[in-house]
Nucleic acid binder design. Structure first.
Lengths: 187, 187
DNA sequence: CTCCTGCGTAGACACTGTCTACTTCCAGTC
DNA sequence: GACTGGAAGTAGACAGTGTCTACGCAGGAG
């Protein structure tokens, strides 16, 4: 295992244990058994190391999401996403920290962009019609938003089971839109 | 204007201009015309100052969201939320940084919790039925997720207008659920 | 007048990420 | 085998960070 890989591995472990605010370039280097100057040979900047950690985490998630989307299994894909957010909140939060990762490599949009395209294709096949791009974005927003809220335990005070909310969400988006009636025009 | 208020005001301006990574306790103090030790008299910690900034921003947003919810105008409430995320991305990101704000005062859940309750009530009135808690969470997730994605310009490469996605989203959630048919049972 | 509390200053402290020599090691070439 | 060059790691310095402590200074209460 290369020193570069070990930095990413050790960094991931420390991040999950202590949170982003509880770690530093120096603590990762020290836990990896090298001096504080060593990471510079592999990453131009601390943010670049964090981007590499985020990139690897996203690839792990992709290994579960991509096959589900390819199999038109929206429920499994969304459940994998939600599960990752709940079980590895620090990594999920890091991936969402675009302010840190933008311009620091990582190239996360390559993966999430593909998800978006595959989601549209899967939605088209399950509903047997071509969804408008806005419909795909609306569904994606719901899954991502639910994962974000769940990840930071914002849903706990309500006592709602996120998995049940996910079922509701998928049901509303992956079936044909109902004809507008009654209440719809009230706003 | 008290020194405490000025720190929050100046901090908000600096945050919106330079981003969270581009400011510091010392830069805020200096811009407010006091020494770097002065903020300590009003905030026990830098995170507490950031929490006060987040709190004030959330109160401003609440001034637009709460009346819309009270008037059962889901569209206006969601549009205000989306607008805030798009126009003040640094503030929106700070509010979402629960890792920073948790335990540093601010008490943001008091506001967002009320939103959630009011959203459920408004949804009940517009749909003329009692929504399951999971349905309220699903709608809330969609609005929040869309705002989060829009705020960090993640939707731009798709060319989709977030406002149109919001309309789709509200339409799917604020009308009675359709009877399951066809594709729905395929997953 | 004497406290004393609220607010601000100035300096120190440990820690951070980055930068700059200086060493070490090892594959490739003559 | 000796030499060289580049990659990788070390150690120290540097400016900047948040926090802590000692001190100053006003102004009201007793």
């Amino acid at each position: 295992m290369s020193a570069r890989d070990r930095l990413v591995t050790v960094g991931t472990e420390l991040l999950e244990e202590h949170g982003l605010a509880g770690i530093s370039l120096r603590s990762i280097a020290s836990a990896a058994g090298v001096s504080h100057g060593a990471p510079r040979r592999h990453f131009p900047t601390y943010d670049a190391l964090l981007a590499a950690i985020a990139r690897r985490a996203l690839e792990e998630l992709d290994e579960r999401v991509a096959p589900a989307l390819a199999a038109d299994d929206l429920r499994a894909a969304a459940a994998a996403y939600l599960d990752f957010a709940r079980r590895r909140p620090e990594l999920f939060a890091l991936i969402a920290r675009h302010d840190l990762l933008e311009g620091a490599g990582g190239n996360l949009r390559e993966i999430t962009g593909r998800w978006f395209a595959d989601l549209g294709a899967a939605l088209a096949r399950t509903t047997r019609r071509t969804p408008a791009p806005e419909e795909v974005l609306a569904l994606w927003s719901g899954v991502h938003g639910l994962a974000a809220l769940t990840s930071r335990r914002a849903t706990e005070p309500t006592g709602i089971d996120p998995d049940r909310a996910l079922v509701v969400l998928l049901d509303k988006h992956s079936t044909p839109a109902p004809r507008s009636r009654g209440a719809a025009k009230s706003w």
